[in-house]
């Protein structure tokens, strides 16, 4: 399990953090328990600079072109995109439901905001996820401390700005603890307008 340390090459623009891309796809026949989730999720690459990000990202399928039940995750290096990870266990996420056709553009915009450190919430951001589903697609941003309302409000307001969301967009927050309890990512959320 030898891992190379990823760092910016000479002349590249370093990112505040290294980020790792993950991909997961649910096999419909299997239950969505923790074990099968962990088996279905794959690390696909880590980037340390703006240039490395674009090189990697340009070769990825756009999320809007994915089919079935699949997710792209972009998380700070060292944080697994799982509720149980040490960095996530007291955290939660904002959820934005997107009608079909919008996922690729919103995914790119949320990534650029995260890589560019636009959220101004210290170390609180863990990562972002785009979830491709049958009826709608879902964008999520995970933070470390679900109980910190100053942080979660600031993330919500930054999201509205960087994604240019209409004022009536429904924003939903769910703690990972609640997700663990009901074994669901997107049901029973707290809705704010």
């Amino acid at each position: 399990n030898r891992r190379k340390t990823i760092s910016p090459a000479a002349g590249e623009h370093p990112l505040q953090y290294n980020y790792t891309f993950w991909y997961s796809r649910r096999t419909p026949s299997r239950p969505a328990n923790t074990q099968s989730y962990e088996q279905n999720i794959r690390q696909i690459g880590t980037v340390a600079s703006v240039e490395q990000f674009w090189k990697f990202y340009s070769h990825l399928v756009r999320p809007g072109d994915l089919t079935g039940h699949s997710d792209f995750h972009l998380f700070k290096e060292g944080i697994k995109p799982m509720w149980e990870d040490e960095a996530n266990k007291n955290g939660g996420k904002w959820i934005i439901r997107l009608r079909k056709g919008l996922a690729s553009r919103f995914w790119e915009n949320i990534i650029l905001a995260m890589l560019g450190e636009q959220f101004m919430v210290g170390e609180e951001i863990c990562g972002v996820v785009v979830s491709i589903r049958f009826q709608e697609d879902i964008l999520s941003i995970w933070n470390k401390t679900a109980s910190d309302q100053v942080t979660t409000s600031r993330i919500r307001d930054t999201l509205r700005r960087v994604l240019n969301l209409p004022p009536n967009t429904i924003m939903e927050y769910k703690t990972h603890n609640d997700s663990l309890k009901d074994n669901s990512s997107f049901r029973n959320t707290k809705i704010t307008l």
Binding site: G11, Q16, V50, E51, Q118
Partner: peptide, 21 residues
Amino acid sequence: GTRIIYDRKFLLDCRTSPLAR
């Protein structure tokens, strides 16, 4: 330390720089 902040336009401009190709 200092935080490395990039705006959207800067990041998009880097996409077309020779280093990112």
